[in-house]
Simulated assay, not measured.
Amino acid sequence: MSNSFTIDLNDEGLERLKAAAAHVGKSPIDFVREAVQEHIEDVEDVISAEAALTKIRSGEMKTYPLEELMREFGPEN
């Protein structure tokens, strides 16, 4: 199922969108669709990182120094 929506761009914004999309060989629609998807993924990554940080600060999740991880799981092991 797909949904659609409308965005308003001024003339300069529309020309910039067209130029950027053409530069990467995409239609403006595909360019916007991919940009929105990437931004959603970025925000989801931030949400996940914030949740992990909350767990670390509360003591619910433990962290390990890189040196310890390399000793335990490094290339020579």
Rank of each mutant, 00 (worst) to 15 (best):
M1G: 01
S2H: 01
S2M: 03
N3V: 10
S4R: 04
S4D: 08
F5V: 01
F5D: 02
D8G: 06
D8E: 04
L9W: 05
L9N: 00
D11A: 12
E12C: 03
R16N: 14
A19F: 09
A20M: 15
A20S: 10
A20R: 14
A22K: 04
A22F: 04
V24S: 04
V24R: 06
V24P: 00
G25H: 12
G25P: 01
K26M: 12
K26I: 07
P28N: 14
P28Q: 13
P28E: 08
P28S: 11
I29R: 10
F31A: 02
V32L: 13
V32W: 06
V32K: 15
R33Y: 02
R33C: 10
E34H: 14
A35E: 02
A35K: 11
Q37C: 02
E38W: 06
I40R: 12
D42P: 00
V43D: 06
V43W: 04
D45M: 11
I47F: 03
S48V: 07
A49R: 15
E50S: 07
A51R: 15
A52K: 15
A52Y: 15
L53A: 05
K55S: 03
G59M: 12
G59C: 13
E60Y: 03
M61C: 02
M61R: 15
K62A: 15
K62E: 15
T63C: 11
Y64A: 07
Y64F: 10
Y64R: 07
P65Y: 14
L66I: 12
E67G: 06
E67I: 12
L69M: 07
L69E: 04
R71K: 14
R71N: 10
F73E: 02
F73Q: 02
P75G: 05
N77S: 14
N77E: 14
N77D: 08
